[in-house]
């Protein structure tokens, strides 16, 4: 290419769907997989664990202590250490991100369930709810706003953290950063940052929407004068 560096749009057009592994569209798909799987897994695992911590209070201290330690571990060395177990695969990125997510979500689930006012719980008991129905129909719905607030944190940080995986060759859009560094060239960096921030914003927006749909009473209460 003797015509000097291409413009950013040109570069995107040329690299969007080359059919190669490192085309932008492929990286985007990889990125989505590696961030969405941990978000969902973290929620699925954190719910029962959080419930257990509320049910058996002694569990909470050790669990949250362990999760605090996990949360403090830097991602890159953890990826590196996992390579010897899970190889250079997406799993190596997905496992740590799931744990980071759980570190945020377990306390959120516990706080959410503890935020159910005692009089609400007791009147549910008095009306004859079985423990399971009480959990599903009364306690979990009340905990939803707190849990979703945690989900927003988890979603946004997972999406941006995936890119560190590029240093072990599994970073989704993060691959654009390593490529840009290796043959110094700005457009991939800009595209990578913009796409990742955009993904994060979309995920955040969807969760806000989910919160509105799942907890209509929260808004209704704000709307009416008390």
């Amino acid at each position: 290419m003797g015509d000097g560096p291409p413009s950013i749009w040109e570069w995107i057009g040329r690299n969007w769907d080359t059919g190669r592994v490192d085309s932008i569209s492929n990286l985007l798909t990889d990125h989505l997989t590696m961030s969405l799987v941990p978000i969902v897994l973290a929620l699925v695992l954190a719910l029962p664990l959080g419930l257990a911590c509320v049910r058996w209070r002694w569990l909470y201290q050790p669990t949250s202590g362990f999760m605090n330690v996990v949360y403090a571990l830097p991602s890159l060395p953890v990826f590196m250490l996992l390579i010897s177990v899970t190889g250079l695969s997406q799993t190596t990125v997905i496992i740590p991100l799931t744990f980071y997510g759980m570190a945020v979500l377990i306390p959120a689930v516990v706080d959410g369930l503890n935020s159910v006012p005692d009089h609400v719980r007791q009147s549910a008991v008095a009306m004859g709810f079985t423990p399971l129905r009480r959990l599903l129909q009364v306690e979990l719905p009340i905990a939803v706003p707190v849990v979703l607030a945690g989900m927003r944190v988890v979603a946004v940080s997972s999406i941006s953290l995936v890119s560190v995986g590029a240093l072990i060759g599994q970073g989704g859009l993060g691959g654009l950063f390593t490529r840009a560094y290796q043959n110094p060239f700005m457009p991939p960096v800009i595209v990578g940052i913009v796409l990742i921030v955009a993904l994060a914003l979309v995920a955040d927006g969807l969760l806000v929407l989910a919160q509105r749909l799942l907890t209509p009473w929260v808004r209704a209460r704000k709307g009416t004068a008390s």
Binding site: V156, S160, S163, G174, L176, F177, T178, M186, V189, V197
Partner: peptide, 15 residues
């Protein structure tokens, strides 16, 4: 939270 650290680092170094 949303900004990818690696991307930011590479951007500053390139700049």
């Amino acid at each position: 939270r949303a900004l990818p650290t690696l991307g930011l680092l590479v951007m500053f170094v390139l700049l």
